[in-house]
Structures are given as C-alpha cells and as structure tokens.
C-alpha cells in the first residue's frame, strides 16, 4: 500500500515538473492581440498604429516581401525586436510575453498568411 502511494506521489511530482508555468496561447490569438495593432487585421500592414510609424509595418500577406526573410530572421525579429535584425525599432522585442515555442508557432502562422 505504502509503495503504491509513493509511486502515486512520484507521478504527481513529475507531472508538476513538466507542466509549463503558463499555458501557451494559439499563434492566431497571439497574432491578433500583439500584431494587429501595427500589422492590421488582414496582416497587410494596415494596423491602427501604422500611420504613426516612420517605417511601414511589413505586409505579412506579401509572398515577395516575406520570402526575403529567413525563419531565423523572423524568429529573432519577434523575440529580440526589429533593431536586432537591423529593422525598425518600432517593432519591439516580444520575449517578455511570448515563449520560444510560441514564437516558433508564430513563424509558421506567418507562412500561412503569405502562403509561402
């Protein structure tokens, strides 16, 4: 009996260890809340903040524009901000909000938007 409860406790402990601290959000939802403000609800750069930016936000629906970037480029721009990839400082670093896994999912989501 004692052995069984010990095993049970160990399983529970391991379960707690592998549970992430915060639940990951879907890339679509992260894109809406964090990217729409500049890149727009269509992803074409037409967000409500776009007029205030000295550099136009990238059009995520343009395959021509998006093909200029590698996945590493996109990942770094989201995580560390535009300045880290010699782009606009208006693109802030999102690492305090998005986990690496969420950013990887976001890169995949961007490929869907440009269909490329």
């Amino acid at each position: 009996m004692k052995k069984v409860s010990l095993i049970g406790l160990s399983v529970m402990f391991l379960g707690l260890m592998i549970t992430p601290l915060a639940l990951a959000e879907k890339a679509e939802d992260n894109y809406k809340l964090y990217c729409f403000q500049c890149h727009g609800s269509k992803g074409n750069g037409g967000g409500i903040n776009a007029a205030a930016l000295s550099t136009a936000p990238r059009d995520h629906t343009s395959a021509t524009e998006m093909k200029k970037l590698t996945d590493d480029n996109i990942f770094t721009a989201i995580k560390e901000g535009g300045a880290a990839v010699s782009k606009s400082t208006f693109m802030p670093p999102f690492k305090s909000i998005l986990t690496d896994d969420e950013i990887k999912e976001m890169v995949k989501h961007l490929h869907k938007l440009c269909n490329c």
């Binding site: 500049c38 409500i48 903040n49 205030a52 930016l53 300045a83 208006f90």
Partner: peptide
Amino acid sequence: GQKEGCSGCHRDKADSGGTS
C-alpha cells in the same frame, strides 16, 4: 522616439502618435 518607439503605440501629442 527613436530607440524604443513609444510614439508608435501611444499618442505623444493630441493629434499624433499611435492609438492602441
């Protein structure tokens, strides 16, 4: 204005700056 781009999302004047 330049390094952190605060005015991209915040209005720094009554008629300019971001709105989110």
